[in-house]
Amino acid sequence: MADEIAAALSANGLVLRGGVAFAGGEEAPSGLSGASAKSALLIGQAGAEPWPHFLRWREGQPQTIANPLDSWSRQVIGAVAEAFGARAVSPSDKPYLPFQQWAMRAEGLKPSPLGILMHPQYGLWHAYRGALLFEEEIALPEQGEATHLCNACVDKPCLKSCPVDAYSREGFAYQACLAHVRGANGEPCRSGGCLDRNACPYGTSYRYPPEVQAFHMVSFSRVAS
């Protein structure tokens, strides 16, 4: 089933990002019928593969639609869920589900200094768009712990490129970042994406193109593009 789901997702540039089996006694979200799920298959992207598929979909939607990428993801993943008898969930669903914890279990990843999970192939240029919840166990390959590239990175350029030092070992200074992106000196961030994220030396062949990064920055800052 996992191979069939992966093939269905590929039609829209999405990929199967591994899965999680919920152990007996573990608190698990509900599946399609309302019973506790036994498996979750994570769905996401590597690089910007979904972008052209999303743009074609968006051409037929009102330009005023709120959160269009989220809406597209829900529609695509929802159709796959319906085809395979699963419940589709999104990282933006409330109450929030522990997507990052699921991802660390599914792919053996660890957070980078920016909070984004570091992938040994994709670097910081990947995302999770949703998950399929099943009330039965889904067979998946065993996933060991991935090499954490941040451990080998001595200089940590991702902590040195932001003009307002929004990221540090103490965490993310959200308000400082937002004020800078919205301000007179924030054009490089608005048009090309987060400078700290772009400074990471890993996974650069998967780096989102500037227009994709600008789209996400507009969504974050709520500044008109």
Rank of each mutant, 00 (worst) to 15 (best):
L97I: 10
E4V: 04
P62Y: 10
T147K: 10
C153I: 04
L117V: 04
N67R: 11
V218P: 00
L140G: 03
G60K: 13
P141A: 12
E135Y: 07
A79M: 09
V80I: 15
A139T: 13
P29N: 07
G47A: 10
P188D: 11
A176I: 00
E26Y: 07
V76Y: 05
E136A: 11
R222E: 13
Q213S: 15
G186K: 12
L140A: 06
I77C: 07
L109S: 07
C177R: 06
K156R: 15
W57M: 04
S90D: 15
R190E: 09
A6T: 01
Q175R: 14
K110A: 14
P201Q: 11
N67Y: 08
F99W: 00
P188K: 12
R129T: 01
A173N: 14
V212Y: 11
F22I: 04
A8F: 00
R17K: 15
Q175S: 14
Q175C: 03
C200Y: 05
G18R: 08
Q101L: 09
S90P: 06
F172Y: 15
A6Q: 11
G24E: 15
C158G: 03
L140T: 11
S92Y: 04
N12I: 04
P29I: 01
R74C: 08
Q63T: 05
Q213W: 02
E170K: 13
A176L: 07
P113N: 04
G108L: 09
R207Q: 14
A46F: 04
W51T: 03
E145Q: 14
S36V: 04
K160S: 12
F22S: 09
S221C: 06
A131I: 04
